[in-house]
């Protein structure tokens, strides 16, 4: 079976600094992969390369058979397949929740207004925020904003979802409500690549965990790997991080 996402020997430099030093891994369709590691280990950069928010110097990245590193890539087609949720939510502050969610369907897919509204209603139901449809982002808590951001991404029916430290800006209480939504998504069969500091989430929800260290995939395995680290680096990371 061909992978939903695959990285092959990916190298990425920011100026002189090499952030990714030959990263390779696959995500199978329907699989949930958690990427963990210290700040600066390259995990967020790897994620951002997958939907080409960053371009790579060498290697190959494929998403559902589409070569992401191809200069002729149809960027918009790639981004229709790949949803992304950010640490800082990045909701559009001048638009209501409904408008945030329906903007892309209306502009990109030319969905009529009434139908788009219906999409918003459904997407909000999935993240449990149906009553906030006409609120503005600033009227919501961080956790609610992040759930709207997830709904906004879902409304485009992506094949793969990327999560870039989506709970790092939230307090533990609000983190829980976001993780619950993500867990439900995972159970629903969404292909997910999740950069996270939430070890409990990685262990419980992820099919596979990738530990990145100094720009490389250092250790990879099922969630149990976190209980039984093989490398001293992962052992140290887990000891300090929890």
């Amino acid at each position: 079976m061909s992978a939903a996402v695959s990285l092959r020997d990916v190298h990425k430099r920011f100026g002189e600094v090499e952030v990714l030093k030959g990263v390779s891994f696959d995500v199978a369709p329907g699989e949930v992969v958690a990427v963990i590691g210290r700040s600066g280990s390259g995990k967020s950069t790897a994620l951002r390369c997958v939907n080409r928010l960053e371009t790579i110097q060498s290697g190959e990245i494929e998403v559902h058979g589409r070569r992401v590193d191809d200069p002729q890539l149809d960027l918009r087609a790639l981004r229709r397949d790949v949803g992304m949720v950010f640490q800082s939510y990045n909701l559009f502050p001048h638009l209501t929740v409904a408008e945030n969610i329906t903007l892309a369907p209306r502009r990109v897919r030319k969905t009529p207004q009434a139908e788009a509204r219906h999409i918003a209603v459904e997407a909000l139901a999935r993240v449990g925020l149906s009553d906030k449809i006409d609120a503005y982002p600033e009227q919501l808590s961080g956790g609610q904003q992040q759930r709207v951001a997830i709904a906004r991404s879902l409304a485009m029916e992506p094949k793969v979802m990327l999560f870039d430290e989506v709970t790092s800006a939230l307090d533990p209480h609000l983190t829980g409500e976001v993780l619950k939504v993500m867990e439900a998504l995972a159970k629903g069969g969404m292909t997910m690549l999740v950069v996270t500091h939430e070890m409990a989430f990685a262990r419980r929800v992820a099919d596979r965990v990738i530990f990145m260290h100094t720009g490389k995939v250092w250790e990879t395995g099922a969630g149990e790997m976190l209980a039984n680290p093989q490398t001293p680096e992962l052992r140290e990371f887990l000891a300090n991080g929890l």
Binding site: N51, L53, F92, R107, V108, S153, M156
Partner: peptide
């Protein structure tokens, strides 16, 4: 910049990102 990143990740064109976001 994250605002245009978010818009472009949703598949909006550069022009749509400018006008709508």
């Amino acid at each position: 910049r994250t605002q245009s990143e978010a818009a472009e990740c949703l598949g909006l064109t550069r022009w749509q990102t400018l006008v709508d976001v």
